[in-house]
């Protein structure tokens, strides 16, 4: 066989990372902005319900200048980082064990299935009793929220290792330990990374909610407190910061997936 037919047409499976924003999206965004502007300019919606673009800009520059926005961002991110990291270090090994050993899987599965549908906010009262208000409580809720997506995806990834790949490895002389660490784990990696990305998304959602109840800082606290202070511009600033950071975190995880899974980045066309 000649090597001519071997130049694979390479394209990226992770096109989403590099994709430019479609022109349609930009038009819709501009349209929404125009509506927003119109609503406040013509007094249809009063300023104390929805801040006008002008007062939004004013609040934004003030929040940036005073360092208030930055402080809240850091507070939220720290809590998410701690809660998420602990969840990762507990959920991934547990998931690997549950996916690899049928008996462990069978034993723990009913417990997981029973706890999974419980919203992480249901743990706030318990957390308050144990940890009081503050950093630990918030990190605890993040931990609960991100635990299950990571766990479930890890279990599925390990369990989903193709039978013929396991057989290939076995026939190649793989030792039992290698069957797990050199075969099942790499094969489960895409699914584990998806679990981490989804878990991070949920962690970021839940931190905002818990900070409204159990914190004196953070973006959740910022928007909740701004409502009490009737600082409508600042609410929008907070919401915008939440969106931007959420987007950035998702991108970051997509980027990690892309780097870690470069082996499947090249597909042969046709």
């Amino acid at each position: 066989m000649s090597s001519e037919d071997l130049r694979p047409k390479v394209y990226s499976v992770f096109g989403a990372v590099n994709q430019r924003v479609p022109i349609g999206t930009l038009i819709i965004l501009l349209l929404l902005f125009a509506i927003w502007n119109g609503l406040s300019r013509f007094g249809i919606v009063p300023d104390y319900v929805l801040a006008s673009p002008a007062s939004f800009m004013e609040s934004l520059s003030e929040a940036i200048r005073s360092g208030e926005l930055f402080g809240h961002m850091i507070a939220s991110l720290q809590r998410v980082f701690v809660g998420f990291t602990i969840a990762m270090f507990v959920a991934v090994p547990t998931g690997v064990l549950m996916g690899w050993s049928p008996s462990v899987g069978r034993t723990l599965n009913p417990i997981v299935e029973a706890l999974r549908p419980v919203s992480s906010f249901a743990y706030v009262p318990i957390g308050m009793m144990i940890f009081g208000l503050g950093f630990t409580l918030n990190a605890f809720v993040v931990y609960i929220a991100s635990f299950f997506p990571i766990l479930i995806n890890t279990i599925q990834g390990v369990r989903g290792t193709e039978k013929r790949i396991l057989e290939f490895a076995k026939l190649q002389g793989a030792r039992p330990k290698s069957m797990l660490f050199k075969v099942a784990l790499p094969s489960a990696l895409p699914s584990i990374l998806t679990g981490l990305r989804v878990g991070m998304g949920i962690a970021w959602m839940s931190i905002i909610a818990t900070e409204m109840i159990g914190a004196k800082s953070g973006l959740g606290f910022l928007i909740y407190n701004s409502a009490w202070q009737l600082e409508m511009g600042l609410i929008l600033v907070g919401v915008m910061a939440i969106a931007v950071i959420g987007l950035a975190l998702n991108r970051l995880f997509l980027l990690i997936e892309r780097k870690a899974l470069s082996w499947r980045d090249h597909l042969v066309a046709g």
């Binding site: 013929r164 790949i165 490895a169 075969v183 094969s187 990696l189 899974l261």
Partner: peptide, 23 residues
């Protein structure tokens, strides 16, 4: 096997290496 089976996350060289490592 009938379906060409290799460890997709390893290079061709890495796949031949695998059995040697294990043995």
């Amino acid at each position: 096997f009938q379906e060409p089976t290799l460890l997709p996350w390893r290079t061709i060289e890495g796949n031949v290496y695998f059995g040697l490592e294990e043995r």
